[in-house]
Design a protein around this nucleic acid. Sequence first.
DNA 1: AGTTCTATTGTAATCGATTACATTTTGAAT
DNA 2: ATTCAAAATGTAATCGATTACAATAGAACT
Lengths: 333, 333
Amino acid sequence: MIKLKEVAELASVSTATVSRVLSNTGKVTKKTRQKVLAAMEELNYQPNFLGRQLRRMETKTILVVVPDIANTFFSKVLRGIESVAIKNGYQVLMGDSQNNGQSESQYLNHLRYKQVDGVILLTARTDPRLIEDLSDDYPVVLACEYLEGSRIPTVSIDNISSARKITDHLIKLGHRRIAHISGPMNIILGRDRLKGYEQAMTQNSCEIDQVLVQEGDFSYESGYKSMEKYLALQNPPTAVFAANDEMAIGAIKAIKKHHLSVPNDIAIAGFDDIDMASILEPELTTVAQPTFEIGSTAMELLLCLMKKEQLTKKQYVLEDQLMVRHSCGANKM
Amino acid sequence: MIKLKEVAELASVSTATVSRVLSNTGKVTKKTRQKVLAAMEELNYQPNFLGRQLRRMETKTILVVVPDIANTFFSKVLRGIESVAIKNGYQVLMGDSQNNGQSESQYLNHLRYKQVDGVILLTARTDPRLIEDLSDDYPVVLACEYLEGSRIPTVSIDNISSARKITDHLIKLGHRRIAHISGPMNIILGRDRLKGYEQAMTQNSCEIDQVLVQEGDFSYESGYKSMEKYLALQNPPTAVFAANDEMAIGAIKAIKKHHLSVPNDIAIAGFDDIDMASILEPELTTVAQPTFEIGSTAMELLLCLMKKEQLTKKQYVLEDQLMVRHSCGANKM
DNA sequence: AGTTCTATTGTAATCGATTACATTTTGAAT
DNA sequence: ATTCAAAATGTAATCGATTACAATAGAACT
């Protein structure tokens, strides 16, 4: 493998000069630059970035930890991250934690071991203290998820109010016996969306039947199973708000299995607005998050952290949007 | 930041000994090991892997380039890769090329720059010569995709025979006017599935109407648009074989939009068996690839390449499986 | 030509860990 | 106690690039 020193020899200059040409730093005359470039060309020189990274103590790479890469919601956030990262000379790598806290914390170790300069977490299933501690020493930004009372820079929507908004929507359509398929209760996201549901129910004097709150895990399967439970009740709900679209899709599948109709027999609302939400029939009423913007904002924040700039604002709460489609009966199909 | 040298000082041993404890190589007595571990603990030492990587000239990291991370087909292949990688002490990083050859070739540079030890490509949209050349110097494995007459180790199914098989299935159900929504013609995968379709048609003396072969790009949207074209024909097809499930789903959407029924009016078959294939109604008849096995086999091959072992076999063709569901009318719903 | 200042280039230390080779320690056998 | 081999540990070079600092070349001016 050709190394910088050999290029220097062929071009009859010092390694310093070659390095200056390579990384475009410092002054080099046009003539020597040409000479060096020619030598690189001739030798087909491929720089070993490990050398640079070790010396500069930076990798120009960031890591995004995603709970589920197959979910289009997260892949859109990623697009936002990438657009800002590339513009600033950073590479983006992805880690799929598969909704697993342990796997998540392993990805975090990449920071400690100097494999990446910063991390954007789209999931926070591992011990919150671990994340807090890490963010004392390294650049970490949380997006979509957040931690209560944390000083970690965060970009997200107001999950409570969004959940309240979509539950309100169901209530306005005349539903009073509304069930909720929640996210995991050990995750804030899950708790917040439940809280929004409860607030809407209480504010509209709808009774909250504890049987109508089943805990899911954001997976299609858990949505399906929870819905089966509701359908087995003597007095099933007339509407269901699922804490994400995948579970909502699972619920719809279960309802169809029982030869019932969405929205005529049971209305379904989701959360996230994944691609499938508008493909599936009936098209899913859901809450759209500003995915691209969440990603780009998170990356901007991370850039500031990596430059050790003072952040003027640490918590960004972006606007969501209620997507009224056909699964709740508000729009005719 | 604490470094190895400081640990050595605190433990009153040499850096060599600390390194031996750290990387579990060579002999160290239990007593000194304890001493070193205690010192590491006390200083909260976090090794900088860049040092090790530079010295050993390996990163113990591999990169998987995926054309579309949001597609569950690829995320399942990834699971297979990861399972073997982790067992062998390798980290897996993902790059999303977004079906873009240029982005793909940028990810390949990570090899040249020594950022990763090997690459598994689940896409081959960039210049084949570039990939060939790279694989002369570095460990590269191709999975799902392949290159004609290439010496690059490859794991895939026989796309031609699979496509023939599913087209045969449609023909056996009585269809003769069958359309194909193909993948991109600049990709072998697309050409192979088309070839399989043509073979089945010809062998069964079905006329191949060139109007009934539209080129898509594996996206939902292109499936939708192609189907719209077929529906606008005076004599639309009675069945459509789409070169992947996403396009098949797009086609179904278009059919439903026209208030027609799948499979009663038009039968639809897909390819890949993504999660949505069995969720959507009607459930999609498609070809299931052994995703996990493709991934694990590809990783095994890559391990051999990285160990510079001689490969006994370079081309692995795995068995696919026809998944007969409801979108072609073979099974009653 | 000589002086001064600046622009360019070179020398060598450096980043943090690993490891070839040298040295010391240990323990068993005599 | 002595010898010797094996085991443990230490010393210092090394990986490949970057960069602080030193040295030199070049330009501009008198």
